[in-house]
């Protein structure tokens, strides 16, 4: 609201703007610096790889959720979708008594992804076409998909996975785990999709003002449907990654992951009301959560206290963000 800012900003002013824009990046750097000083086990290559691996799944889920939240929606079902996709994947990825794969590995991957897409499509259809509030829809599908995961797996972990996947889950190339490589690829694609394509622009427009977007000829309801499908895809992918990592498909996997993902999005500066936010913010947000959890583990802080601290971080991040916008 300040028209006096019309004039060219001075050097100090520019620094201030940069600092504000990337405040959360600086927060992450400070967090890393502080942890490096107080724990001698924190600042090591191995530990960084651990953090990257631990964060990869939450980051990918959060990327999916970012698309949804940017349109003004919400997806509570990602944790359950992760579980049901992981179970579907593990069932096809099984080996027989001789250790031979029952189906080609690609089919197992497709099964996992397809399951995620299917639930994403369901969310999208009900939200965008039947116009039911996203919170309610995804609260429903959260329970439904969890239930289906438990039914299909008969309440037990689906084990006996082909060794290809085991080596994918724990293997690495040049010291970088496959899971991390996938996360990096997904991040790059998501940043590109959101920032450089018409579809990305439409997402911001629909979230910023759906009626105006529609009046501008944007297929708002298709855009909304699409973001839930993308979110389902990300959940499917995460489900496969999770199953490979622990070498079983657990129907109980991913409980509470939806809130972790939403936390990353919020810490990353995306407004829950939609229309405002950045994909890189979400990724940094996921790493703030990851680094903090890792650091507190190393320092021997109890997991009970960790919950209190992450809660405080979420609220503080939003307060900080609001102070910046004023």
């Amino acid at each position: 609201m300040n028209k006096n800012n019309f004039s060219k900003a001075g050097a100090g002013e520019t620094m201030k703007i940069i600092f504000r824009k990337y405040a959360i990046v600086f927060a992450l750097i400070i967090l890393i610096a502080v942890l490096s000083v107080i724990s001698d086990r924190f600042f090591t290559f191995t530990n960084f790889i651990t953090i990257l691996t631990q964060t990869s799944i939450n980051a990918i889920l959060a990327i999916g959720v970012t698309f949804v939240i940017l349109t003004g929606g919400i997806d509570l079902s990602v944790g359950s979708m992760l579980a049901v996709s992981g179970v579907a994947f593990a069932m096809i990825a099984k080996v027989d008594a001789n250790g031979e794969a029952l189906f080609p590995p690609a089919l197992a991957v497709l099964a996992g992804i397809f399951t995620g897409l299917l639930f994403g499509l369901l969310n999208g259809l009900i939200v965008a076409k039947a116009k039911v509030a996203p919170f309610i829809v995804t609260l429903g599908t959260m329970t439904i998909s969890r239930g289906i995961a438990l039914i299909v797996a008969d309440g037990r972990p689906v084990s006996g996975m082909s060794s290809v996947f085991k080596s994918f889950g724990s293997g690495s190339i040049g010291g970088i785990p496959y899971l991390v490589i996938i996360m990096i690829m997904v991040s790059v694609i998501a940043i590109f999709l959101l920032g450089k394509t018409k579809f990305g622009r439409y997402i911001y427009a629909v979230g910023g003002n759906e009626e105006a977007a529609r009046a501008s000829g944007i297929p708002a309801s298709n855009v909304k449907m699409m973001v839930y499908i993308i979110c389902g895809f990300m959940a499917g992918l995460s489900g496969i990654m999770q199953a490979c990592r622990v070498v079983v498909g657990q129907p109980n996997a991913g409980e509470g992951y939806e809130l972790q993902a939403i936390s990353a999005v919020v810490i990353g500066g995306t407004a829950l009301s939609g229309g405002i936010g950045k994909m890189w913010g979400t990724i940094v947000g996921a790493f703030i959560i990851g680094v903090l959890g890792n650091g507190l583990d190393l320092l021997g802080v109890s997991s009970y206290w960790q919950k209190v601290i992450s809660g405080i971080i979420i609220i503080a991040a939003v307060l900080l963000d609001r102070a910046d916008k004023k």
């Binding site: 911001y204 910023g208 003002n209 009626e211 105006a212 977007a213 009046a215 229309g275 405002i276």
Partner: peptide, 8 residues
């Protein structure tokens, strides 16, 4: 309401 997307 209809003309502009204000945050953009």
């Amino acid at each position: 309401g209809v003309g502009l997307v204000l945050p953009l």
